[in-house]
Structures are given as structure tokens and as C-alpha cells.
């Protein structure tokens, strides 16, 4: 087994073994559970004015993971990704272990790559937890069967699950751009919480700017403008245009953030 994957596994053990992060994952998992139970016990079904997918939950349990992702994507998932990404380099600098990793030696580029990979894998775990728990409780409470797309067409369970998986992958790609921004912030400071808060600030600012009609022209360039476009996967045929734009924007932000992180970290004096 290559040395890179040994360090990556160590990194994942560190991230997933940490009590704080486990509690965070539990909190992420609570949303679909609360959502499904609330819909089940409410006397009247949610009306057509209810947010995306929630109105459809009673028809098919597979709408629970989609609705849960929709609820958590604007703020809760970015919060989780921001905390983990902010911790990546700054957390090691904060407790002084960075100097010992570098003298092992771990090359700085390799350390950045492993830290980023671990953050993205944590994002995958978070999305799988939200969607997995959502699907489990959704199917348990509402059953599955044929799924009615937004365009009205019905598809079978197999294709429906595939589309849910595709939506999860798209969400991971979107969040990965934020993870790269967090990696960059994490190279700037020895305060992991500070780096995490900076990520969250970028996310919130981007959300707000995206709402301002005066700044319409700016929208498509904001990091999270296309995030909600995962619903386009549930049209027949899939509306690929916004999805492609979303992936491109995510890759662009990730690339720029990565270059900035490398420029900052490559020659940085490690005095922590």
C-alpha cells in the first residue's frame, strides 16, 4: 500500500474519530429524521407551497433525502465542511504537530493534498449520512415504488436511486470548492476556528449577494449560485446546462483556492 494512502487513512481516523465531528454527523443525520417524522405526523399534508420536494415526500420516501439535502445545503453542510477544512492545517499548527509532520518528513504539497482529500472524503461521508438516513427513514415511513419527476414523468425505483446518487455526487462536487477555500484559509492562521468562520462567512456572503436583484450579473460567478441546481436532475430529460455550469464554477473556485493555498504554504515559515 502506498505511503500516501497510509497517511490519508490516518487522517480519516483523526477526523472521523474526533468526538466533535461525530456529534456533528449525528446533527446532520437528525434533519431527515425530524423532517420525515414531522411530515408523517402532521394532520394535513404539506401544501404545494411547501419547499422543494417536501410536498412530494408522502408519495415516495426517496424524496426525504432530497428534501433533507435541500434543507442542509445552504448552511448546515457548508458549516460542517468549513469547520473540517479550517481545521486541516491550522489545527495542526495550533497544537504544534505541524512541525513534526513536516520533519517526518511529509512534503508540503503532499500534506496539502492529503488534508484536502480527507476533507472531501469527510464531505462524502456527511452527504451519504444525510441521504442514507433520509432514504432509510423515508422508505420506512412512506415506501418507495415509482417516482414522479418534476416534469411529471414516472420512473422506476432503480433509475430513481441512480438519480439520487447523481444528486449526491453533484452536491459533493459543489461542497468541494468550499473545502478548497477552507484549505487556503487554514494555511493563513494558527486558529482553526478562525479559518472555519472565514469559510462560513464566504458562504453566507455569497448567499446574500446571490439574493440581491441589483447584483444579478454577479450571481453565476458566486461559489454557491448553482448548488440548488441538483433538482434539475429530477426532470425528464435531465436539464444539464446549470449542472455543467455548477461543476465548472466549483472546479474554478477549487483550482484558484488550491493555487492560493500552495503559494501560501510552500515557503511559509512554520514557527508554531
Amino acid at each position: 500500500m502506498s505511503a500516501g494512502s497510509r497517511l490519508l487513512r490516518s487522517e480519516l481516523r483523526l477526523v472521523l474519530g474526533r468526538r466533535r465531528n461525530q456529534v456533528g454527523l449525528l446533527a446532520l443525520a437528525a434533519v431527515p429524521v425530524v423532517l420525515a417524522i414531522a411530515v408523517k405526523v402532521s394532520v394535513s399534508e404539506p401544501g404545494p407551497e411547501a419547499p422543494d420536494f417536501i410536498s412530494s415526500i408522502t408519495e415516495n420516501g426517496l424524496f426525504v433525502p432530497l428534501a433533507a439535502l435541500g434543507l442542509e445545503l445552504p448552511f448546515i453542510l457548508p458549516l460542517a465542511v468549513g469547520i473540517i477544512a479550517g481545521d486541516s492545517i491550522a489545527g495542526e499548527a495550533n497544537i504544534g504537530t505541524l512541525r513534526y509532520l513536516l520533519t517526518v518528513p511529509v512534503a508540503r504539497a503532499r500534506l496539502l493534498a492529503v488534508k484536502y482529500a480527507a476533507t472531501v472524503l469527510f464531505t462524502v461521508v456527511a452527504v451519504v449520512v444525510v441521504a442514507g438516513v433520509g432514504a432509510a427513514i423515508g422508505i420506512a415511513l412512506f415506501g418507495s415504488g415509482r417516482l414522479t419527476l418534476l416534469s411529471g414523468t414516472q420512473i422506476g425505483t432503480g433509475p430513481a436511486v441512480l438519480r439520487v446518487l447523481l444528486a449526491m455526487a453533484y452536491v459533493v462536487v459543489c461542497l468541494s470548492s468550499l473545502a478548497a477555500i477552507g484549505l487556503f484559509f487554514s494555511t493563513l492562521t494558527e486558529q482553526p476556528i478562525g479559518a472555519g468562520i472565514a469559510v462560513i462567512a464566504v458562504n453566507v456572503l455569497s448567499l446574500i449577494l446571490d439574493q440581491l436583484p441589483q447584483l444579478d450579473w454577479l450571481g453565476p460567478y458566486l461559489p454557491n449560485h448553482y448548488w440548488a441546481s441538483y433538482i434539475e436532475i429530477f426532470r425528464d430529460p435531465i436539464n444539464g446546462e446549470p449542472l455543467r455550469s455548477g461543476v465548472l464554477v466549483a472546479l474554478a473556485y477549487a483550482l484558484v483556492a488550491w493555487l492560493a493555498a500552495w503559494a501560501r504554504f510552500a515557503g511559509k515559515d512554520v514557527t508554531s
Partner: peptide, 9 residues
């Protein structure tokens, strides 16, 4: 020592 080990340039 940090310079010797490459931590500080």
C-alpha cells in the same frame, strides 16, 4: 534548529 530542519526558510 527550525532552519536546519527546513521549517523556517
Amino acid at each position: 534548529i527550525r532552519m536546519l530542519l527546513g521549517l523556517v526558510r
